[in-house]
């Protein structure tokens, strides 16, 4: 009889803590797989694993982050993707490099390029083409709005690693978008008022 009560209590806690995160987990799965049927399979796999290992979940810690970690690991396993380690530079140097991207964009008359609505698809494609480690940092922080710390917990790396992967990814995306805008012949606005033409 006590077993029955334990089981009911376990299911109740699982429903309250884990199932209530379903919208978040579904969104995260969708951003990993980019395909709805695959995302549904991934969500199911995540919750089955979570239920089987519910005893290992530490009450009081963030259930959502725990589920995201399971989801992420299941994704790499299901899609037989290897986690390759990518070399990253210092995070602040990536920030500075982004400043260089900005000034070159500004110089080419593309200073407001990211304000264009028609870049949406190009951005999505550029994100999908990033190496997994970079893509997941952007997905967690920029698309899903997690803090660096949450993202670090989900991925299982130090916060500094998240920061440098994220910044590198952002810079790569910016460079690709600028190249895309130039190649697609998106007309630049007026260049910085005749600066280049000065003798």
């Amino acid at each position: 009889m006590a077993d029955q009560a334990d089981k009911r209590e376990k299911d109740r806690r699982f429903q309250e803590a884990a199932l209530s995160c379903l919208p978040d987990v579904a969104r995260f799965a969708l951003s990993l797989t980019r395909d709805e049927p695959d995302a549904d399979d991934l969500v199911q796999e995540t919750y089955l694993r979570a239920y089987r290992s519910w005893d290992t979940f530490e009450p009081g810690t963030e259930c959502r982050a725990w589920l995201f970690t399971i989801c992420r690991n299941a994704f790499y396993r299901m899609h037989k993707r290897e986690e390759r380690t990518v070399q990253c530079d210092d995070a602040e140097l990536e920030s500075l490099a982004a400043a260089a991207v900005h000034s070159s964009a500004e110089h080419a008359g593309f200073g407001d390029v990211f304000a264009r609505a028609d870049l949406h698809e190009a951005l999505e494609q550029a994100l999908n083409e990033l190496p997994d480690q970079f893509r997941e940092a952007v997905v967690l922080v920029d698309v899903q709005d997690h803090s660096y710390e949450d993202a670090a917990t989900v991925i299982g790396v130090p916060i500094g690693t998240v920061r440098s992967r994220l910044y590198r990814a952002r810079r790569l995306l910016q460079e690709r978008l600028l190249t895309y805008a130039k190649d697609a012949g998106i007309a630049p606005k007026e260049g910085p008022s005749g600066l280049e033409r000065n003798p």
């Binding site: 919208p23 579904a26 969104r27 969708l30 951003s31 709805e36 995302a39 407001d112 990211f114 304000a115 870049l119 949406h120 951005l123 999505e124 994100l127 952007v138 920029d142 698309v143 899903q144 709005d145 952002r170 995306l173 910016q174």
Partner: peptide, 14 residues
């Protein structure tokens, strides 16, 4: 603006 564009990639499950 760049970060706002990235935020718009967020998709809800249908």
């Amino acid at each position: 603006t760049f970060l706002e564009q990235l935020g718009k990639l967020r998709r809800e499950h249908p």
